[in-house]
Design a protein around this nucleic acid. Sequence first.
DNA 1: GTCTATATTTAGATAGAC
DNA 2: GTCTATCTAAATATAGAC
Lengths: 215, 215
Amino acid sequence: MKTRDRILATALDLFNEQGEVHTTALDLADELDMSPGNLYYHFKGKDPIIESLFERFEAQISETLAAPIEAPLGADDSIENNWYYLFVLLEDMHDYRFLYDNLTDLIHRYPNVERGFKRILKLKRAAFFALCNQLIPKSLPAREQQLSAIADNLSQTATFWFSFDQLVHPRRSAELTIHRGVLQLLTMIAPYLGDAQQAFYRDCEAVFESLQTQA
Amino acid sequence: MKTRDRILATALDLFNEQGEVHTTALDLADELDMSPGNLYYHFKGKDPIIESLFERFEAQISETLAAPIEAPLGADDSIENNWYYLFVLLEDMHDYRFLYDNLTDLIHRYPNVERGFKRILKLKRAAFFALCNQLIPKSLPAREQQLSAIADNLSQTATFWFSFDQLVHPRRSAELTIHRGVLQLLTMIAPYLGDAQQAFYRDCEAVFESLQTQA
DNA sequence: GTCTATATTTAGATAGAC
DNA sequence: GTCTATCTAAATATAGAC
C-alpha cells in the first residue's frame, strides 16, 4: 500500500500547486517517475484519486470542527483559545486548498464530494455558531437571528478565504495567509466583544502587521 | 454585427446555467442553431467569447461601483439607499455569475481577466470603504484599521456570495439569493449602527423572512 | 455569412509483455 | 507491480463549397 500513499501525497501537492483541472494523469505519473499504465493500475484515473483525497480531508476537518461543539473552550481566555482554534481549522483547509479553488466545478462533477461539502458546511456553521454563542453578549436584540447571520458570514469567509487571498496577494506565504484569515474571521465578532477581548483582537492585528512588514 | 451579439447573449446564458467548463463550442453552436464552422467565423473559439463577455461585465460593474465614490449617498436615510445600492451591485454580478463560479481557474487561464478582476476588486473595496466610512461612527477605536478589515470582508462576501449560496441553497430563486446576499453584507455593518438604522436592518430581515416563507 | 466535412490535439483509458 | 505501446473519445480548429 506504499505506492497508493505516494500517489495520493503527490497528487495533493500537484493539485494544490497548479490546480486540479490542469493536472493530468500523465503529469502526475511524470512527477512520480512512473508510467501512466502503472498509475492506472493503482487508481482508475483522476476521479478515484480526488474522491480518496476528499475522504481524507473530510475525516480530518470533521475531527477539528467537532472539538468546540463537544467541549466548549473556557470562557475567561476565550478569544485567545478561539484564535488558536481558527488557526488550526484554516491550516486543515489550506492543506487541501485545491478542493476549494474550483468548488463549483468539483461538486458538479462529484456528487459524493457535494454531499461531503454539505456535511462539512453544516459542522462548520455549528462550530461557528457555538463560538459566537459563547462570545457574544446575551443582551443583544434579535440575538438568535443575528448569531445565525454571523455564523453564515463566518462560514462563507472561511470557505473562500484562500481563493480570495490568492486573488489579492498571489505570492503571500501560507503562514501569513492563514494568519490574515483568522483575523478576517475575528473582525466579524470584534464589535460585539468587551474591552479586554477587543484589546486582544487589536494585539493580534499588531502582531500580524509586524509579521507582514518583516516579510 | 447582430450575430455576434446573439452569440454572446447565448453563451452568457449557457455559461451561467451549466458552467463555462462544461459548455463546449459545439453546445453553443447547437443552442444557436448554427454550425460550428459559422461560430468559428465570428469568434475563434470560446476564449475570445469569454474575454468579450468579461469586457462587458467590467464596463457594467465599474459604472455601478463608481457611483458611491463619486457622489456619496445622502446621510439621513443612508442605510436604505445603501440597501438599494448593494442590491443593484449584486444584480450586476448575478448576470455574469459564471465568471465567479470558477474564478481561480479562470484567472489562471486568462491573464487579461485576472488583471480585470483585480481592477474590479480595488473599485469594490473602495466603494465598500466609502460606504463604511459614511455609516460607521467616527469615535471607533483603531477606526482606520477596522474599516479596512470590514471592507475586505465585504469584498470577499460579495465576490463569493453566489458560489456559497449555490452550495447551501441550490435551487433558490435569483431574487431571494440576491436579497439574502445584501443582508449578509449589511450584517457586517449592523453592529456599528445607531438604533434607527439597526431597526431598518431588522425590518429588512423581516421582509426577507416573509418572502422566503412565501416561496 | 453560413454550411459540411475533416483535421488536429489532448487527455483518458486499456492490453499485453516483463 | 511496473513497463511500453496503443486505442478511444471529446473538444478544438480549419478548409473549401455554397
